[in-house]
Amino acid sequence: MASIEKLPMLAAGYEKLTAELRALRDERPLIVDAIEEARAHGDLSENAEYHSAKERQGQVEAAIADLEDRVSRAQIIDPTTLSGDKIIFGATVTLLDDDDKPVRYQIVGPYEADAKAGKISYNSPLGRALIGKRVGDEMEVSVPAGERFYAVEKIEFI
Rank of each mutant, 00 (worst) to 15 (best):
M1Q: 13
A2L: 15
A2H: 12
I4G: 14
I4F: 13
L7R: 04
L7K: 03
P8W: 03
M9P: 02
L10T: 09
A11Q: 10
E15L: 05
K16G: 13
T18F: 00
T18R: 00
T18N: 00
A19R: 04
E20D: 09
R22F: 07
A23E: 06
L24H: 01
E27Y: 02
E27M: 06
P29N: 06
P29D: 02
P29R: 02
L30M: 15
V32K: 11
I35K: 03
I35W: 04
E36C: 14
E37I: 13
E37C: 11
A38G: 06
A38I: 09
A38H: 04
H41N: 15
G42P: 02
G42W: 04
G42H: 08
D43N: 05
D43H: 06
S45P: 11
S45A: 08
E46D: 11
E46G: 14
N47D: 08
E49F: 14
Y50M: 06
S52D: 14
S52E: 15
S52I: 11
A53P: 01
K54D: 06
R56K: 03
Q57F: 05
G58S: 03
G58V: 00
A62W: 02
A62C: 04
A62P: 00
A63I: 00
D66N: 09
L67N: 00
D69A: 09
V71Q: 03
A74P: 02
Q75D: 12
I77M: 06
I77D: 03
I77Q: 05
D78K: 12
L82F: 10
G84P: 01
D85N: 08
D85M: 04
D85A: 04
D85I: 05
K86S: 09
K86R: 14
I87D: 00
I88F: 11
G90V: 03
A91L: 07
V93E: 05
T94P: 06
T94N: 07
L95Q: 05
L95T: 06
D97R: 15
D97Y: 05
D99S: 12
D99C: 13
K101D: 14
K101T: 13
V103G: 10
V103Q: 12
V103E: 11
R104I: 13
R104D: 12
Y105I: 07
Y105V: 04
Q106M: 15
Q106P: 07
G109N: 00
E112S: 01
A113R: 01
D114T: 07
A115M: 15
G118D: 08
K119S: 13
Y122D: 09
P125Q: 12
G127C: 12
G127T: 05
G127Y: 00
R128P: 07
R128T: 15
A129E: 06
K133V: 03
R134E: 09
R134P: 01
R134A: 06
V135N: 03
G136F: 03
G136D: 01
V141P: 01
S142T: 14
G146C: 05
G146P: 06
G146I: 04
E147A: 10
R148K: 09
R148L: 10
F149D: 13
F149T: 11
F149P: 14
Y150K: 07
A151E: 11
V152T: 04
V152M: 03
E153W: 10
E153P: 05
E153H: 13
K154I: 12
K154M: 08
I155W: 02
E156H: 13
E156F: 12
